[in-house]
Nucleic acid binder design. Structure first.
Lengths: 230, 230
DNA sequence: AGAAAAACATGACGCATATCATAAAAATTC
DNA sequence: GAATTTTTATGATATGCGTCATGTTTTTCT
């Protein structure tokens, strides 16, 4: 599979939980030194530039991780449940959030004390090794998106995102899209109007079907071809 | 400093060597299970898609790490000596190089057996923690470049790269650029002609001076302003 | 349920930037 | 050191895509 393909475009879905690798005592430590916070749909979980005193683990829900820009944001990933967020705060000398996070659905986020997290990394090499794997997967997917956004034109970029949402997030060819057209534009780095126009193109060509928020990918081979050709 | 600023644009320069954290026995292990390979200017160190059986450490030289595209490549980073390369090969289930690497100057690369590297990560938590920091810094810089490439127009993107080359790579306001205009275009995701035109604009405006390969940044405040305004 | 706000939609227009063509200068090669 | 290749340079043209304006539909709020 090529690096620039649609599977590398949104989010990193790491099937195995990193917490499986902790000892019972370490799990206990995480439990006592973390809190679970519930967020309603549309709420902000963390704000770019503010102080990061904890690592976040999305136990339930769907969120976007994004850079705030003027006037347009850039969505880095759409992240589903069972994923760590805010690992960059581990970086020594930087204790602020690199990005903002907000929810698409009601969500539950576990906030883990960053000192505890660092301690676990230093005392449990298997845990640290797992985190390295997670960071690496995230980097690899970031490169794929990099290529998509800088080297493909609008139709290719939107095809990438639709395929990736279908495969990685919703795991179905039909899904209800909680993202607005404006979100899709922040994801593909194009104008909202262009998203709307290209969605219509795809619909007119029988490649996808749209009914309000309901999206169905009809002609996957053509969508993949558009993705590949850029 | 804003995330999209020029300091986040090229390479990750990690001042401390990760190998300082190894025990004498572990250092010995790395020595016996690695080889030092010399490359001439312009040679390819590794090829995207080929099998990755080792982690690379650039002991001496200057290289570009890039995604191969058709017809244009995308340079992910310009990386100077004392940096690890190819860490993504650690990711379980992926033992191929995500990118290609080629040299700008004569270089020396230490190839470290990937199994030994994994062993060190698992047995030495401080080493693993350092690697996590390196990966995190790399990710943070990747996000900055993401923003620059997708949300700024040509002048801003080129200003970003010139400032970053000056600050992070050459650490001087005057330097001999081993990159061609085509390399700059692969870094900024624009056409080679646009690079040339904008360099001329900058020269005509007294912002930089160009003499063949020799570049001098004259008016840093204006260059920073162009970078900030995008 | 009705009002207000947000999201979706569509066309006209303008511009930033790529592409193409051509040529000069510099670097590399034998 | 002459020949070939690569790099730099510049102008003309084409176009992909954003911006703006305006209207409709859907969602949210009270």
């Amino acid at each position: 599979m090529p690096l620039s393909g649609p599977d590398t475009c949104v989010s990193f879905v790491y099937e195995l939980s990193c917490f499986d690798l902790l000892t019972p005592e370490e799990k206990e430590l995480v439990d006592t030194r973390s809190v679970l916070v519930n967020y309603k749909k549309g709420e902000i979980v963390c704000k770019q530039g503010s102080f990061a005193s904890h690592i976040m683990y999305l136990e339930k829900g769907l969120v976007k991780i994004y850079l705030e820009g003027n006037p347009k944001d850039l969505i880095l990933t759409i992240t589903p449940q069972k994923n760590l967020m805010g690992l960059q705060a581990l970086f020594e000398g930087n204790n602020t959030f690199l990005y903002s996070i907000s929810t698409y659905t009601d969500s539950a986020v576990r906030l883990i004390d960053i000192q505890i997290f660092k301690q676990l990394l230093k005392q449990n090499p298997h845990f640290a090794y797992r985190i390295i794997n997670i960071l690496n997967e995230s980097t690899a997917q970031s490169y794929g998106r990099f290529f998509s956004l800088t080297h493909k034109q609008l139709h290719g970029r939107l095809a990438d995102i639709l395929l990736c949402l279908s495969r990685k997030i919703f795991k179905a060819e039909s899904f209800d899209l909680p993202l607005t057209r404006s979100d899709l534009s922040d994801l593909t780095s194009m104008s909202t109007e262009s998203v709307i126009r290209i969605m219509k193109d795809f619909k007119d060509d029988g490649i996808i079907d749209i009914n309000n928020k309901a999206i169905t990918l009809i002609d996957l081979p053509r969508l993949e071809s558009i993705s590949a050709k850029g």
